[in-house]
Design a protein around this nucleic acid. Sequence first.
DNA 1: TTTTTGCTGTTTGCAGACAATCGGGTTGTC
DNA 2: GACAACCCGATTGTCTGCAAACAGCAAAAA
Lengths: 229, 229
Amino acid sequence: MGTIDLQITRQNASLRILVEDKLRQAISSGRFKPGQRLVERELCELIGVGRTSVREALRQLEAEGLITSYPHRGPVVSTISYEEARQLYSVRALLESFAGQEFAENGSNEEIVALLETVEAFEAAAKSGSGTRIIEAKTAFYDCLMTGSKNVFVKQMLTSLHNRVTLLRMTSMTQPGRLQNSVFEIREIAAAIALRDGDRAAALCKRHIEIAAKVALDYLSKNPVETSE
Amino acid sequence: MGTIDLQITRQNASLRILVEDKLRQAISSGRFKPGQRLVERELCELIGVGRTSVREALRQLEAEGLITSYPHRGPVVSTISYEEARQLYSVRALLESFAGQEFAENGSNEEIVALLETVEAFEAAAKSGSGTRIIEAKTAFYDCLMTGSKNVFVKQMLTSLHNRVTLLRMTSMTQPGRLQNSVFEIREIAAAIALRDGDRAAALCKRHIEIAAKVALDYLSKNPVETSE
DNA sequence: TTTTTGCTGTTTGCAGACAATCGGGTTGTC
DNA sequence: GACAACCCGATTGTCTGCAAACAGCAAAAA
């Protein structure tokens, strides 16, 4: 009897949240390209909600850095320069290595088991070759990693950074051979965590991101991000 | 005395931003205590703006973590538990030591000069004993430190963390003798940066925050944060 | 050609309205 | 008196119309 209301509480996600997710998804998927203007009225009829919900959702995305608002010209999807990308990967390396270390030193055994499972799922997804499955699996891995770090602030910040990486419209994994290396690196990270070797886990995380950064930045310097107009 | 028209014509800051700042300030200053409910209508007539502006400002503050919204009950000034405070100081140590290291290794000479000036201002403020001057000077120091780190993401994140620290309603500097030590530590940090000794700067920053964390957490475990009702 | 002027699309902000929902008090029953 | 069901006021969530301000642009004027 008491379990039925779960479905009901599910639906109490306010409209604003739904709009947020829709927009986030639209940006991540590339439907909205960096630089593109987001006209309020268009979004309203596109999503089918009133201005209030749209505007509040936009404020949220702006706070996350996914969009940038110019006074009296409205929001545009954020662009990210080469230099900013470099800085982004730099902090990401710092925070993820911290998360890895904390996980190794403070994570519960259950969390380690869960982490290993996400690694296996990631390997399977990589073999399958399905892009969406790979992204899902990688997201699950990071989610697990951040949760195990037992630091809500780190989790928040890393989530925000991950979202912004998608603005680059290129995961380092689209590079040939990169995916295989990525699988290997992640397996190593999980192994170090399972062995409770915090320093090694941190070093591996750092290295993992640094490699991804190098690939992404190299690509970026050759193929500038395609912006809308 | 022809300055009057400046105030009116210069509304380049949108109303929403002004409301944000007002609320942020009200929370930081303790006018709104953690746990206190923020009723929309009250805020509207208190600040003298419409609901639109208030609501959008609230969304922004929510994204920053300064307030927490419960569905159909509205926003509440965030409370921060002992465990969260510990996590907060933990990330702060990580990010600030990173900032210190980057500053030492990549900061310009002009920025170093500016940093040293903020240190002197801080010392002067400490001697004066004026609470507001001390806070201002410390803010200026951190602002300089973050800018010199040449990483907008770090700056953003640290600013957010600093804002949230004020929710604890207690700067570690209210403890006897702590202010003097703080002055000394900051002088050491700046000195290390001026000498371009990145590792030492990082270590000193880390230590500085860890001490502040210890003081704050000890205080917190004895005097729980006073919340409104 | 250059500057001024005015138009248009858009954001920004306000006010009012309505439904949904929550919390608390009241009522009714046992 | 205790307890459940119920109702009501307060508040949020959402929509819509309206007015003002502004940016960009094109046409008009110098």
